[in-house]
Amino acid sequence: MTDNPVPTNINVQELTRKGEEIYQQELKADLEQRNIGGYVAIEVESRRHFVGTTKEEAVAEAKKEYPNKIFFVRRIGEIERIASYSPDNPLVTQ
């Protein structure tokens, strides 16, 4: 057995669901008009959000306020795309 890098005290599905809900209901219209192609990091408990032109910028801004939180991070507009890999059918296995 190896260490799981995902903390066991985090409900990932719930965090993702809440984060996407906040994005769709409260942020989508405004962010997709002003920051399309950028990234947003949402602290779901406070419902505060932090915007950056890159994922790194958005998370860095969020970490300044909440250094130990796990954020919901999303590309503004279309979600992140990983064209060379799919979980069930790894195209790039060695």
Binding site: V59, F72, R75, E78
Partner: peptide, 9 residues
């Protein structure tokens, strides 16, 4: 640091 959603191949 976070979770999100991604679209795969």
């Amino acid at each position: 640091t976070g979770v999100g959603r991604a679209q795969y191949a």
